[in-house]
């Protein structure tokens, strides 16, 4: 059965990407690779990875990329986001990090990064770095279920795959209801609304990624580095 691999937070690490490609070859039935942003980061020269993503090596699973928080910050600081000027990364990480981020990506790659989409809708799933509200929206298993339901409702999807928090989790809305009573000039109406069965899935970051099987709705959390250790130790 066809499966998807969902990865985020490579942050320019080409060796990690090669390791992930090797790991995915060992996974059965992985037909699609989605990279949910943070392809670049301030700690690496990102150019080799960006080249490989644009021109995959023979045998690579074709990557489908969207932009993440770090791409958004870089593009903002390079004038691709109107008046925005990447204040968030400056405040969060400081000027030095920000300078290193710019130094790690050649100007020739900016148009490709700027062409990346905010997210994908595949079947009834939303694939986004942050959420339907913002690329920097950090959702995890402790986020209010009401807020998660809002993020799902805004996109009108049954499953939202997110990466910003770097956490691996699945939070399933399994039940619940609310009464809505509206009074206006025509009278009063009361309605019961039930919570739809929907999920938010955190895919992890870096070597930790997620495999999703749309046919069975099964999610499994993987670690490329752990899988590699097991291989060396003869567990697989």
């Amino acid at each position: 059965m066809e499966r998807w691999a969902l990865v985020s937070g490579l942050k320019g690490d080409a060796d990690l990407y090669k390791q992930l490609q090797r790991d995915l070859k060992r996974q059965r039935g992985v037909a699609y690779l989605f990279l949910l942003g943070d392809l670049i980061g301030p700690d690496q020269d990102c150019n080799y990875l960006i080249n490989r993503l644009q021109q995959p090596k023979p045998g690579d699973l074709q990557p489908h990329c969207i932009y993440g928080w770090w791409e958004d910050q870089l593009l903002a600081s390079c004038g691709y986001r109107g008046e925005q000027r990447a204040q968030e990364s400056r405040l969060e990480h400081g000027e030095t990090f920000h300078r290193r981020l710019k130094q790690g990506v050649a100007a020739e790659h900016l148009p490709w990064l700027a062409s990346l989409q905010y997210g994908f809708i595949e079947l009834d799933c939303g694939l986004i770095h942050g959420s339907s509200v913002d690329v920097g929206d950090s959702l995890d298993e402790s986020t209010s279920p009401l807020l998660l339901l809002d993020r799902l409702t805004r996109l009108d999807v049954n499953r939202l795959f997110t990466a910003r928090s770097a956490r691996q989790f699945r939070l399933e809305l399994s039940g619940g209801q609310i009464t809505s009573c509206v009074k206006d000039h025509s009278g009063e109406q009361s309605q019961e609304h039930v919570v739809p069965k929907r999920s938010v899935i955190g895919i992890g970051a870096g070597s930790e990624y997620c495999i999703y099987e749309p046919g069975s709705d099964h999610v499994s959390f993987q670690s490329a580095s752990a899988n590699r250790r097991h291989l060396k130790q003869g567990f697989v």
């Binding site: 939070l171 619940g176 209801q177 509206v182």
Partner: peptide, 19 residues
């Protein structure tokens, strides 16, 4: 469009799995 909307008696059940 004037209205008063009251939202009450609500609850959400969740099932959480994390690595």
């Amino acid at each position: 469009q004037p209205y008063i909307r009251e939202l009450s008696g609500g609850s959400i059940q969740v099932k959480v799995q994390a690595r």
